[in-house]
Design a protein around this nucleic acid. Structure first.
Lengths: 300, 300
DNA sequence: CGGGCGCCATCTGATTTTCTGATGGGATAT
DNA sequence: ATATCCCATCAGAAAATCAGATGGCGCCCG
């Protein structure tokens, strides 16, 4: 009879559920009705299970189909599995109020100063039990996404490679920050005059080059900085009262607008600040929520 | 795109295993090779899972297929399930040496005295960690099997109903037990002389009638007992030195053969002692072992 | 930067599995 | 005994799954 023992891997959850119903009702026919299938379908499927498990599973005892001991064991595991399937099926809903996950955002100084406070406030308001971690992303932001070290990346990153998604938050450009007493504080700067200034250059290292520098060099010029610093931190106090000029993103400079002067740069180096994420987080409910939240916080 | 969301119950273990392999290898094509199927089969099955779980499960990230968070969760449960399937599949082997189960045997006085000691000894020899429980089965032995109160039933029970299996152990017949000094101890008994004796009748109650009595009554006779007792216990001392005669199974009487006389009865009431079990224990390895052991112990 | 290549999605048709409806045997109930 | 219920089985239909071919997309290499 068992010409070819059927492959147990071909057992599906419908078969396990049928086992459950037959066990519950003690009858193939009744199970068929409950499952809205033909009686012979039940017979067929139970027959297959019988062959797979090499056990009759159910035997007639005075009009009822009674489970064998082996069947009881199999059934117990089957019920567990059916429960697990149900768990697997529920589309990962995300309830910010109850959520306790951690969110890791990769970005740089610019975003840390200008955007993170608003983002953190927004998160804490609707998801007070969540935690936020901010990590820096010099030039390896995309890699950190792939390594799952960060959930999202915010910054001036063109989406080049596949495996990523991104959303533009807003456009930004560079401007010159200087002391209000600087001789050229009120004069429009052309390229030559700009290049002759005493520049404070921010060199983030790691091969990163600011957009205005790329534009400047593409135009055949070269910047000779007076001072090089690794980050915009403390820039305001460095410039105040000096003849130094720093070329930094406009919104960053705007924070010092009360004490310093922000003048247009001949090399504006326009770029976009974007939200970037790895493809593997694209469908996740939590990540979708996070991305929408960041988008609102950085636009509204 | 999701014209008809496929029924998640139609997911089988082969699909879960495919998920596992794709995750392991990070490639549909490689998984197809490993599973000895066509690449399009992998695509088809993963596509079905994608539809069931409403999640891409795998996304391309730099040449590799990377699992989504949801996929990781699903996979974790899938691995558990695949493990459970393997457990379910192993044909319940039974190792008497390690077994700690209990065995419950239903029987009556006759078997308890003549057979149980040998059975228990045999069990304890090969399965020292198992325990044995003996329960009485007046006329409800079959019911106790169905109720799973007993694993096997031993006794003179014809297998009438379905839902049971049985195996004949040996044939038995009734004989007359009396004091060696009894006037008829050496004379062959015919029916009339037998009927005129002073009988000790064992009446088990519960509607049970001994085979020799049925034979006797079928022949139109009637037995008028001098004494009625509910069990053969202590019968030897009751008969010794008296003119009482008890008609009991031959092997039971043989235990008193040194002090009492066992004479053929004109109503032999032949019957079979059988091992009976419920259909739902028929395939169980433990029960098969137990039945074989009992059969050997009662025959060998 | 263009062409080759590897990988997955999709199409078509073949194969296998599963289902329906009908029939028969065995056991139970009347 | 007869009627009835229940499961197994059969033949054919329907559905699911698979193989082979094709196309699109991105990567890699020149």
């Amino acid at each position: 009879m068992p010409a070819s023992p059927p492959n147990p891997a071909s057992i599906d959850f419908a078969a396990l559920d049928m086992l459950r119903v037959v066990h519950e009702l003690g009858s193939f026919t009744a199970a068929a009705e409950k499952l809205n299938v033909n009686q012979s379908a039940v017979s067929y499927t139970i027959g297959k299970l019988r062959a797979c498990f090499q056990d009759p599973l159910f035997v007639r005892e005075g009009g009822r189909q009674v489970a064998t001991d082996r069947c009881e064991e199999i059934l117990a595991k089957s019920l567990q599995m059916l429960g697990m399937l149900d768990e697997m099926l529920q589309p990962d809903a995300f309830a910010p109020g109850q959520a306790t996950q951690n969110v890791t955002i990769a970005c740089n100084y610019y975003e840390r100063v200008l955007l993170i406070p608003g983002i953190v406030a927004a998160i804490r308001q609707v998801a007070p039990k969540m935690t936020v971690k901010v990590i820096s992303s010099l030039s390896d932001g995309h890699l950190r996404l792939l390594r799952r070290e960060a959930d999202v990346l915010i910054g001036p990153f063109e989406r080049a490679e596949s495996g990523f998604h991104s959303r533009r938050l807003y456009g930004e450009e560079y401007a010159c920050l200087m002391d209000p007493g600087h001789p050229l504080a009120r004069t429009p700067l052309d390229a030559d005059r700009y290049l002759s200034l005493n520049h404070v250059l921010i060199d983030y290292g790691a091969g990163w080059q600011s957009a205005f520098l790329r534009e400047l060099e593409a135009a055949g010029h070269r910047l000779t900085p007076t001072i090089v610093v690794p980050s915009p931190a403390g820039l305001g106090t460095l410039i105040a009262g000096s003849d130094l000029v720093a070329t930094i993103p406009r919104r960053l400079g705007a924070r010092d607008a009360e004490t310093l002067t922000l003048a247009p740069s001949p090399f504006r180096g326009r770029f976009d600040v974007s939200l970037v994420w790895a493809a593997h987080t694209n469908a996740s409910a939590m990540h979708r929520w996070l991305r929408d939240l960041i988008w609102s916080a950085c636009r509204g």
